[in-house]
């Protein structure tokens, strides 16, 4: 079958690519576009390693067709830092050792940023349920939850 032409916006940049009709957005990001920061852990929407935002909504890019990106705004881990300036969540994850192997980290950061955009003052329970779709096998989540809570507090302080 002929490839489809897709025009989309990724991390603020207009992008065009060709995809197979059955290709997942994850596959197009990692393969066609070379944006390998978004990870694949399962391909069935169970692990959250491929988390991105689509028009500001958190989605598993493995569960979405690449063709569905037409005209949408996509944000991936590659766009989270502004040049050398890490996002406060990225910085806090490093300071608090909220990663071990790091494979879940891009998805975890995208999900956490999306939470803080919606809810700048989440409770521990809210953080835990928001991140429940992002599997981490290394950390037991403790340092991740603490890092998200502390970042939220710092960002609230900075916003004041």
């Amino acid at each position: 079958m002929a490839k489809l032409h897709v025009a989309t916006t990724i991390n603020g940049e207009p992008m065009e690519f060709l995809c197979d009709p059955g290709q997942s957005l994850l596959d197009a990001l990692r393969g066609t576009l070379g944006l390998t920061g978004t990870k694949e852990g399962c391909g069935t929407g169970d692990c959250g390693a491929c988390s991105i935002t689509l028009d500001g909504r958190l989605v598993c890019s493995c569960l979405m067709l690449a063709a569905e990106a037409e005209g949408r705004e996509i944000a991936t881990i590659e766009g989270m830092a502004a040049g050398e300036d890490l996002h406060p969540l990225q910085q806090k994850f490093l300071e608090m050792a909220a990663l071990q192997c790091g494979i879940c980290t891009p998805g975890m950061l995208i999900a956490a940023r999306n939470l803080l955009e919606r809810n700048p003052d989440p409770t521990e329970t809210e953080v835990r349920f928001w991140l429940a779709g992002n599997l981490c096998r290394c950390t037991g989540y403790d340092k991740i939850v603490r890092a998200v809570m502390e970042t939220a507090e710092e960002m609230r302080g900075a916003a004041r």
């Binding site: 390998t36 590659e78 890490l86 990225q90 950061l109």
Partner: peptide, 20 residues
């Protein structure tokens, strides 16, 4: 509690894993 040498690559998606 120093910042790990491979940390920045891992929080920015630069780190290259088996499939990358």
């Amino acid at each position: 509690r120093t910042i790990r040498p491979d940390g920045a690559d891992k929080v920015t998606g630069r780190a290259a894993y088996g499939a990358d």
